[in-house]
């Protein structure tokens, strides 16, 4: 088997697991989750500074040696998301942005129209755009067409832990675009992450499944193994599904009585 590197916009990442920090209860837990997950890329949100905050999230991330992927969470329009992306680039000296433009606060599903508009603007402004999108293959293709460096379809709504509700669409998205496909949102447990990879996703982005697990460090380790296993299985080429059994032991040579 040849080398199997994970590359986004020309940058190689050492892990196909991208860890979100949403829901983490304290910095010690985050440190453990990062270490156990083996991730090389960690998301953050951008909010008003709190002078009273004990230590900073950035100190933890710098110590862990991971790359930062800022997001535009909380934005409901393209204009808001573009503004926040520019602030993120200024803050973190990275042109990478996880683009989120949310359509409603109940489902937190992406607003497709605003998303494509924001993606186009940010690509033109020189950003490496990683859009959080629905599991619609046509929308994914449109995002790739405007120059996004990857597409990040949801498996299920953010934080729902419902897994991958439409695996066929995720497989179709893999066929529809040539940029990396990263399953983002909906992962509940390790088998969901493995399934994403078996469907051909290039990576998995998850937060709540680890940060809100009873033992985040242990779940982070489970996710690390699941992503590796799923990727290996995808590349290995699974057997076809059959309705009827196929004997694995030889029929020939059976004794007669």
């Amino acid at each position: 088997m040849g080398s199997d590197t994970f590359v986004i916009a020309g940058e190689e990442l050492e892990s196909r697991l991208i860890l979100g920090t949403g829901g983490v209860t304290n910095h010690a837990v985050l440190e453990e989750a990062i270490r156990e997950s083996g991730t090389a890329l960690v998301t953050v949100a951008l909010r008003r500074i709190d002078p009273a905050a004990p230590g900073t999230l950035l100190d933890v991330l710098e110590k862990a040696g991971v790359r930062i992927l800022p997001n535009t969470a909380g934005c409901y329009t393209a204009a808001e998301a573009v503004k926040l992306a520019h602030l993120a680039r200024e803050a973190f000296a990275t042109s990478w942005i996880k683009l989120e433009v949310i359509g409603d606060e109940d489902t937190l599903l992406p607003d497709a129209v605003e998303l494509v508009s924001a993606a186009q603007t940010l690509v033109d402004d020189g950003f490496t755009v990683l859009p959080y999108t629905t599991d619609d293959p046509v929308l994914a293709r449109r995002l790739a067409d405007v120059g996004c460096a990857a597409v990040m379809p949801l498996g299920a709504p953010i934080g729902s832990g419902m897994g991958i509700r439409n695996p066929y669409n995720i497989a179709l998205i893999r066929e529809a675009v040539s940029v990396p496909v990263i399953l983002d949102a909906g992962i509940g447990t390790a088998s969901d992450a493995a399934l994403a990879m078996e469907l051909g996703c290039d990576g998995v982005l998850l937060a709540s499944a680890v940060t809100r697990a009873e033992r985040p460090g242990e779940m982070a380790a489970a996710m690390r193994h699941a992503v590796i296993a799923g990727r290996l299985a995808y590349r290995a080429g699974r057997i076809a599904r059959r309705l009827h059994a196929t004997a694995s032991s030889p029929v020939e040579g059976m004794p007669t009585w």
């Binding site: 953050v44 008003r48 969470a73 602030l87």
Partner: peptide, 25 residues
């Protein structure tokens, strides 16, 4: 831009947003 922070004087009535990383995503 950070490179202009020192030179940029604030004026009365300005609305300033100062942001940093928090958990999310």
């Amino acid at each position: 831009p950070r490179s202009t922070w020192a030179a940029r004087a604030l004026d009365p009535g300005d609305s300033v947003e100062i942001l940093t990383a928090v958990q999310g995503g």
